[in-house]
Amino acid sequence: MSLAVKSLGELSKIKHYYGFRYLLNAAVHEQIFDKLKLATVYPEPNKLKILDLYPGPSQHSAILYNRCKPAQHVLMDARPDFVKHISQFITENSQHAQGFQLVTLDPYDWHSYTELIDRNKVMVPSHKGREAIHNEFLVVANLTGMIGEGLFMQWLACIGNCNWLQRFGRVKILVWVPESTALKLLAKPGDHLRSKCSVVTEAFTETKLVAVMKNKTETSFNSSLLEKHRPVMFESKDVWMPSGKPISLLEIDPRDHKVDLDNFDYVTKHLLILKSTPLYDALESLGHGGKEYFCSVIGDDRLLQKCPKDLTVSEFIYCTEIFDKWPFKPDIYLDFIDVFQDND
């Protein structure tokens, strides 16, 4: 038997949505899961564990549970109206909800994960090697509220550092974010939105645009991005609350990277502060004498004439490798700036 899937009409009766927005059209969720083909990544449902962060009205949670039939599906939410709703939903579906459970912890707090996994052992994911995406652990989340973008940037840092939930392996994350955040993260070299968060996203993850909300101009994503990702399109009437910023769904697959994180952080941060300045001038921001040193080593005038916003990830890594070999490079730990926090 499957969990009951409630409609937008029923779920809109929940009094508070706490500034978050949720897709509440079951047919569109089915299209999304058809597109994701999760069964190919998680072929053994009896071993699969799903951690569902900020599930709110939990329509997507019920549909995901019905599709995957995981061994364990933990919903983490501490917002009172949603806690009441989810608790009642689990009670109503108690005969069909084996492994479907709520923990009233706040996904924003780092100690929530320590309490869930290490202290109380409510969910203990298996450890996997980094040669492939973890095939027994999936994270889904909704970060469409005010805290969402900042929290996602912290999660992105964890992907790069292989800590937090990424200590268990390369754990896929399906995450709903504001459209504006998705546009930043997916910006390519040369785009006006290109910044350190898009460089870091590209360096440490393979990120796909899975679903987007139509607006008056269809969508804010450019045609080449839409052609590449072919996302599921849904209407604004399918989303509750009825007002607010458009939302998008991203599929985040961590890469097995070999990037020198400390030097990469320093180089990308400093160069992208001057993202519209030709590289041969921007290099001086890396330290006194940087321009002279880098220009003598690089010797490629085409690269030196590029602006940092036009550089590919490979070119940033190339600059990082040169920086690491610089005999007179500055002490990067005396100039700590968090590369994962966007300041555009």
Rank of each mutant, 00 (worst) to 15 (best):
L249S: 05
M213C: 10
M153C: 10
M153H: 00
K172H: 05
L116Q: 09
F328N: 15
K329I: 09
M213W: 05
K269H: 14
Y318F: 09
I50H: 06
Q166R: 01
V28L: 06
L51Q: 02
L3D: 01
D331T: 03
P107S: 00
T144F: 02
D34N: 15
G169H: 02
D109W: 05
N66Q: 10
H257S: 09
M241I: 14
N161F: 12
T207L: 02
L209E: 03
A4G: 01
L36S: 03
F294N: 06
W164L: 03
V267S: 08
L249K: 08
F221M: 06
L174V: 05
A62K: 09
K49Q: 15
L193E: 06
K196Q: 09
F221P: 11
L8S: 15
N93L: 14
D344S: 12
M146Y: 12
T104K: 15
F152A: 02
A132L: 09
F33D: 01
Q72G: 07
L249M: 03
L165V: 07
E149M: 11
Q95I: 04
Y54L: 05
E206Y: 01
L186N: 02
L193D: 00
D52Q: 05
R255G: 03
M146C: 10
T91A: 14
L102T: 00
P231R: 00
R170H: 11
T207P: 04
V267W: 05
D338F: 12
P45Q: 09
S198E: 02
K237E: 12
F137W: 07
E131I: 03
S58I: 07
V232M: 00
D338R: 14
S58Y: 11
N46E: 08
V5F: 02
P254N: 01
R79Y: 08
L209T: 03
